[in-house]
Design a protein around this nucleic acid. Structure first.
Lengths: 335, 335
DNA sequence: TGCCGCAATGTTAGCGGTAACGTTCTCGGA
DNA sequence: TCCGAGAACGTTACCGCTAACATTGCGGCA
């Protein structure tokens, strides 16, 4: 007994109904202008009537192209990446590609696992949100000969394409902005401490050292960021360094949490303590006082990544490149 | 000239290296206990050495199962759904399924498009985050004979499985909580006005009417929620109804934004105005004052959805059902 | 001794598409 | 009249994997 089909409508069903071969139907879907008007109309009608849904697995298997691209982000709940995702999604959808998203939970091992999974699914390209990967992951990506974009931070050794901003320069810039604003006893508070946060910390140190200021007021933890953690870290810092006059928080969540803690303590911001965040999330422009932050071009990063991937998928040659998308300092009420 | 292969390592390559047929290799991957120890070890070694990655498209095409499930959420940036996503993801991954996520932007037309896309990709099931769909989407889902879970709200007419909470009852509960706390001139502010928000609004009206209170203080807009919008809506409401003593915001983003606006106006919360939100996002427990809210079991909803999908994928019969996951009222400092 | 059963592996025939090449037919120009 | 070029459609052979069934070999038991 032959294996029975899944029961779904196939190209063959359309072909039989119209009285042509299934290649003609396939052609009609991919290059309509190569099929005569009359046949095309009848095929389109049959597709409509039978609710035909092409089987992409079969198509991909046969053509070697899946028309999908994987986007790996560290965390879905972190709104930082939802903007990147939007940019990527929009750009790729226009070109007819579907974005498949995975989240690594900030773990390069999990990233490796996902790269493996999505390679198994036959994606045509990858957008990663870091430049740090396991050796095995790098090997897999190199062997696959697919376009790969590493986003968010910049690196001197891109796997392929690199789109992001210099996190260290940005950290230095916000440090300098605080110094320019007159603050002298500036703290840093950081959570998670992934590579990007470390870079921001290094930039903050650069700025303070260049101005001859102490970099000792530095409170970090490997725990994941959250509003509450921002409050906790700030409390610990106020305890250790009561004279602190400003804090650069490694991201906006911590900064907002720190602000709430100040409100709880009836500590005037920026009168008694100035606060700065990083990323430019919506909340920084909504709180009272509004929060000074570094606005990162996340959407633009996503769009650029999509553009470069599409270019490559449409035949552009492999050409390792680095795209610095810059950043903006938004000086707001909190400093 | 025959079509050349993609150059990727295939089952055949492994088979040749080990000196067995490719079926044995395939079997070794799917049912290791059915292959002799010696052969198994040699196959595993070959897989390791050659960095073999199975081609899921081919596997899915042949077996009719893709080991993937689609999860459609309205918005990725809305942290409400990231918890659902985590629950779904965890549950499905354990069972060996990959979650493919799509976002509908709160549009049922876009949902329809995504259902079509993911059917083309051959997913084995769907988790939707609403009970509202286009007719065509419903037809597609019914015809596909796949397990489908509609989450978040409850419905009397589930497509298949329904896991959520009664949004109207929850809206009523928070209304009653405000009344019990002594508030009498209670407002409602809502954005987006999707079905769930409408239900919460109806619940709020139920509560107020039952207590003989006026339901006129109701400010809504179709615009999407944001912190800033919460501030804008509150401003408009204070203008129209200066005597208002409490506001139930349809979600936590609006509530937080309203709180920030109160701080800006030096309006004491809850002294001069009480605020309540909906969902129980992290921020509600971090602000000063902390925000009263309805805690929805989003993670549990996701986990339950995953459990029920897996059950069905493992052979349980179709059995339309409704699972009320309840909610909790968290009375905090803002009321 | 012969036969059965089972473990281990192989053979065959697809799954639903698409690339590459073949065939048919029409039509215009030398 | 004949030939050649396209347009329009068909045939064939895969893509890489797996379901279903076939085969082999060995041990145990009547």
């Amino acid at each position: 007994m032959p294996r029975r089909s899944t029961g779904r409508v196939t190209l063959q069903d359309i072909a039989e109904r119209v009285g042509v071969s299934k290649v003609t139907v396939s052609r009609c879907l991919r290059e309509p202008q190569r099929v005569s008007e009359t046949v095309r109309l009848r095929i389109e009608e049959a597709i409509e009537v039978l609710d035909y849904i092409p089987n992409r697995q079969a198509g991909a298997l046969s053509s070697g192209r899946s028309l999908s691209v994987a986007l790996l982000v560290p965390s879905i709940s972190n709104s930082v990446f939802s903007e990147v995702q939007r940019g990527v999604d929009e750009g790729l959808r226009e070109a007819g590609y579907q974005v498949l998203m995975g989240h690594t939970g900030y773990s390069i091992l999990e990233e490796e696992r996902l790269i493996d999974t999505f390679l198994a699914y036959g994606v045509d390209g990858f957008v990663l949100s870091s430049t740090r990967h396991t050796d095995h992951a790098q090997r897999l990506l190199n062997r696959a000969h697919l376009p790969v974009v590493e986003t968010m931070e910049l690196t001197d050794n891109p796997l392929d394409i690199n789109v992001g901003l210099d996190q260290r320069v940005a950290g230095r810039a916000i440090g300098e902005a605080l110094i320019t604003a007159g603050y002298r006893r500036i703290g840093f508070c950081g959570a998670r401490l992934d590579y990007r946060v470390q870079q921001r910390l290094a930039g903050w140190e650069d700025a303070l050292k260049a101005a001859g200021l102490s970099t000792q007021r530095c409170q970090t933890t490997p725990r994941p960021s959250s509003y509450r953690l921002g409050g906790e870290l700030l409390s610990a810092m106020l305890e250790r360094w009561p004279d602190m006059d400003a804090v650069f928080c490694c991201n906006d969540d911590l900064a907002a949490g720190a602000l709430f803690e100040c409100q709880r303590r009836r500590l005037d911001v920026p009168g008694q303590l100035a606060l700065a965040g990083f990323n430019g999330l919506d909340i920084t422009d909504a709180t009272w006082p509004t929060l000074t932050t570094v606005i990162t071009p996340r959407r633009a990063i996503g769009e650029q990544a999509a553009r470069l991937i599409v270019e490559r998928l449409q035949g552009a040659p492999r050409n390792p490149s680095r795209h610095d998308m810059g950043f903006d300092i938004a000086l707001r009420q909190s400093t």
